[in-house]
Design a protein around this nucleic acid. Structure first.
Lengths: 207, 207
DNA sequence: TAATAACTTTACCGATCGGTACAATCGCGG
DNA sequence: CCGCGATTGTACCGATCGGTAAAGTTATTA
């Protein structure tokens, strides 16, 4: 027989899925128990503060994953341009082209926002800051990078909403494509370094 | 004493607010009763199919409002450029610079999406189609207009999420500003119906 | 192997859920 | 002023909610 004694860490991933799919209030202890394979006793053993602690644990795990896979490369990787491209790839995979909801974004628009305000805010602030850092290292102006980073993060959240509303992952993928055009500087080794066009129509595009 | 007998139409606005603030599952009949001032008896008299019918009624009202105020001008107004600008103004006001959640967007990411899939899809399809129509009438390429319209609608949804997550309406307003730069063509020196606003907020912009 | 800690099962709690039934009340046309 | 349909208040339903208590079982350690 497989091990009867579970570990807290094993519950995090199923918890994340059930909260993503049903939201904070919609995820009942019955659903949570089914998703994790744990009874109430075990759940309250690992998370004495109930659902709130479960979500906090999930948010911590999500934050750590993004820190390792997305934010840290954006901040530290010498190839800023490559880090931005990798961010778009990771994001597309993580959100399954919009089929998977962003739990943090969903919590941000729910009435339970205040309970997790700090974690929600931190998630997005880190993302925008890290992306801005990479954009600046690409050689862009700091203010323009700020705007661009905010626009990019916001577009990803909006793309999830819209692609789910349309029930069409292509919507999400088009949004990622557009972001790639606006954020990643194509480097033809043959030609000059080029300049960055900050005009409204071609904002941030290399010309 | 005010009239004791309520009308169904009077309940729609409070219903919209309570569903916006608490979501479909989170809006209990107790909350709904408090928000509308109606008891269960009245509520089930006006909406025999319960909460689902209430939300459908709200979605219908929302759709009608956007049709009248946003979509129709985008499609039919001869001044396409002006209609786009007006759309951004209306949107900023309607969503209270991100302080007010988009019910349709919130339903799109909730697990109850399937119940209202048709209305949700119609809301966004109409928006994107109408905006594309205006962009084409501005003289833009059809394919590019499609992409741009999708990006704009998506950005508005994302801006709501992000500005709520940050608890900062300025995030929403920056997003609207950026959209104005990208969507509204300012260079029409020919027949200029507007005036130049020199106030700090709108310096040098056509209003 | 005995003691102890970690984990699980089960039964149960009061509160609230969405929804129903129905009698009482209201406004209005006759 | 009557009668009738539209509206409302209230009591109630079974189900489920999040959470607690405590006895039982398993793994770890000494």
């Amino acid at each position: 027989m497989a091990r009867m004694v579970a570990e807290r860490a094993d519950a995090i991933a199923p918890l994340a899925e059930v909260f993503r799919e049903h939201g904070y209030e919609g995820a009942s202890l019955a659903l949570i128990g089914k998703a994790t394979g744990l009874g109430k006793g075990s759940l309250y053993h690992f998370f004495p503060n109930g659902k709130e602690e479960m979500v906090q644990a999930v948010l911590g795990e999500i934050g750590q994953w993004f820190e390792d896979v997305v934010y840290s490369p954006l901040r530290n990787q010498s190839d800023a341009n490559g880090a931005i491209g990798a961010m778009l790839d990771s994001t597309d995979q993580y959100f399954r082209s919009g089929r998977r909801v962003c739990l943090v974004g969903a919590l941000a628009v729910a009435n339970t926002r205040d309970l997790f305000a700090q974690a929600i805010r931190g998630y997005f602030v880190s993302w925008v800051d890290a992306l801005q850092s990479a954009l600046i290292r690409q050689g862009r102006d700091a203010d323009q990078s700020r705007i661009l980073a905010e626009e990019a993060v916001l577009a990803i959240q909006g793309a999830i909403v819209l692609s789910r509303a349309m029930d069409d992952p292509a919507v999400f993928q088009r949004a990622i494509d557009q972001l790639r055009k606006r954020l990643v500087i194509e480097n033809d080794t043959s030609n000059n370094k080029g300049t960055i066009d900050d005009s409204p129509q071609n904002e941030g595009r290399l010309v």
